[in-house]
């Protein structure tokens, strides 16, 4: 009992001394995008990253997702079964498995899967995380309704849809059969007010259900509504980490 309480309080994600440099060989450009970042996200926590353009927010999310290769430091993930793994150094094959089964990543743009229907795209994300096909399809239907993607669009390919529709489909896929850790990079950037609210509500439910969420939102209203903690980045460094009110106030002043 004691044991399991203790372990459930351990963070799902623990980023330690994370550095990320980019070297563009042909033009000899070198950028230090993250300079030793520390942060944690617990189960049911929603940590929002804020900071100016170029501060390193997307870079941080991608280092966790491992579509960027961290230069040094650690990205500890406590997996569903309790096992710890350092995503910064883990074998690609292992990262591929963990990604598929435990992590959701929703970027600003849909990674278009041509010639596959909206319903399939969403359901497949659930199947990858271990849902049965029927179950995944049922959940996909619910998720698409929740983000107001009408039934008339389910059979078409997402590639031909509008940016806002794609974004909602992306979100439905990334949150289906909820991942253990959800990474969100401006997931409501191209949505109108009504759709934006629907998507934010879905994200809010997930955190309440115990998903660890690390996000970047363009608008601070969304941060206020959802974040349980806010981490401010400036030039690749964490400059504040605390309660949303406090950090937002600090940054505003």
């Amino acid at each position: 009992m004691e044991q399991s309480n203790l372990s459930s309080r351990e963070p799902v994600l623990e980023v330690r001394d994370l550095r990320k440099d980019f070297t563009i060989h042909v033009i000899g450009r070198h950028v230090e995008a993250l300079n030793g970042v520390n942060l944690t996200v617990g189960a049911g926590e929603h940590v929002a990253l804020i900071g100016q353009s170029g501060a390193g927010k997307s870079t941080l999310l991608r280092c966790v997702w491992r579509s960027y290769r961290p230069t040094s430091g650690h990205v500890w993930l406590r997996q569903r079964d309790g096992a710890q793994i350092d995503l910064a150094t883990a074998d690609d094959r292992e990262v591929a498995d963990i990604r598929r089964q435990q992590i959701g990543y929703v970027g600003q743009f849909l990674r278009a899967e041509p010639r596959r229907s909206v319903l399939e795209v969403v359901a497949r994300a659930g199947i990858r995380r271990g849902a049965h096909e029927d179950d995944a399809t049922d959940q996909a239907v619910t998720a698409l309704r929740e983000v107001a993607i009408g039934e008339d669009l389910w059979g078409t390919s997402p590639v031909v849809l509008s940016g806002g529709e794609q974004q909602r489909i992306n979100l439905a896929a990334g949150t289906l059969y909820p991942p253990h850790l959800l990474l969100l990079d401006e997931p409501v950037a191209s949505l109108d007010a009504g759709n934006r609210q629907r998507v934010l509500e879905r994200i809010g439910h997930l955190a309440r259900d115990g998903v660890a969420v690390l996000s970047v939102f363009h608008d601070l209203e969304a941060v206020r509504q959802l974040a349980t903690r806010v981490v401010a980045l400036c030039d690749g460094n964490v400059v504040a980490d605390g309660a949303p009110n406090e950090v937002l106030e600090l940054v505003a002043s």
Binding site: R62, S67, Y68, A96
Partner: peptide, 12 residues
């Protein structure tokens, strides 16, 4: 060698 999306987004 790498994850395919990493080779695209962050080629070393």
């Amino acid at each position: 060698a790498g994850l395919t999306d990493q080779l695209f987004e962050d080629p070393q």
